[in-house]
Simulated assay, not measured.
Amino acid sequence: MEKDLASLSRFAFLIVAVLNAVLNLLGYQTIPEQFVNDVVAILSGVYFIWAGWKNNYISEKGLRQKEVLKQHKLD
């Protein structure tokens, strides 16, 4: 069975986030709030740039896909 690195990393972040939330509920400050805000801002920016790149016809592959759509009158 092949391991999916993206799925494993998302699951690991989920475990850390849940653990952090539970410890915060119990009154323990585990991860500073400013650090969490900074990480969320950086990851959001990276994700938005990646999504913009993947969902537009910018790369060579995207331009070829757009040509195929035009040929079949699907654009």
Rank of each mutant, 00 (worst) to 15 (best):
V16T: 07
L63V: 11
A51S: 10
L19R: 05
F48S: 10
T30P: 00
I31D: 02
K66T: 00
E60K: 12
L69Y: 08
S44N: 14
Q71M: 15
G62K: 03
V40G: 06
Y28G: 00
L69H: 04
Q71P: 00
S7C: 12
I31A: 00
I58G: 00
K54F: 03
D38K: 15
G27R: 06
W53D: 06
L26H: 03
A21K: 14
G27N: 08
S7K: 13
E33H: 07
I15Q: 05
K73Y: 12
D75P: 03
G52T: 03
D75A: 09
S44E: 05
A51R: 13
A51Q: 13
D4F: 11
M1D: 08
S59I: 05
A17Y: 09
K73D: 09
F13W: 11
S59A: 07
L23I: 03
K61V: 10
M1T: 04
E2N: 14
F11Y: 10
S59K: 02
A51H: 13
K70Y: 14
L14S: 14
L23P: 00
N24G: 06
L5R: 11
I15A: 13
I31K: 00
I15R: 12
L26I: 08
V68Y: 08
N55K: 11
G52H: 02
S44W: 11
L74Q: 09
V18P: 02
L26R: 09
N20M: 04
V68M: 13
G45S: 01
N56H: 15
W50Y: 15
Q65D: 09
L19W: 12
Q34V: 14
Y47S: 06
H72I: 09
V18F: 09
I58C: 02
Y57A: 05
Y28R: 14
K3N: 05
Y47I: 00
F48G: 01
L14K: 14
L63C: 03
K73G: 12
H72K: 13
L25Q: 09
D4N: 13
Q34W: 13
N37L: 08
L43N: 04
E33V: 11
A17N: 06
M1W: 04
V68W: 14
D4V: 04
G27A: 02
V39I: 07
V40C: 09
N37R: 15
V22L: 15
V36Q: 12
K73V: 02
I31L: 07
D4I: 01
K54I: 00
G62T: 02
A51W: 07
P32Y: 01
K66S: 01
L23E: 06
K61S: 11
E60Q: 13
D38V: 05
L43G: 02
K61A: 10
W53C: 03
A6L: 15
F35S: 10
N56Y: 07
H72Q: 10
W53M: 07
A41G: 04
V40I: 07
V40K: 15
Q65N: 15
M1V: 01
Q71T: 01
R10L: 14
L63S: 05
L63W: 12
N37I: 05
D75N: 15
I58H: 07
L43M: 14
K61H: 10
K3Q: 11
Q65V: 00
V39P: 01
K61L: 13
L26Y: 03
L26M: 13
I42N: 04
L8R: 08
E2V: 01
G62A: 04
Q29F: 04
E60G: 12
G52F: 07
S44P: 00
L8P: 00
M1Y: 02
W50I: 11
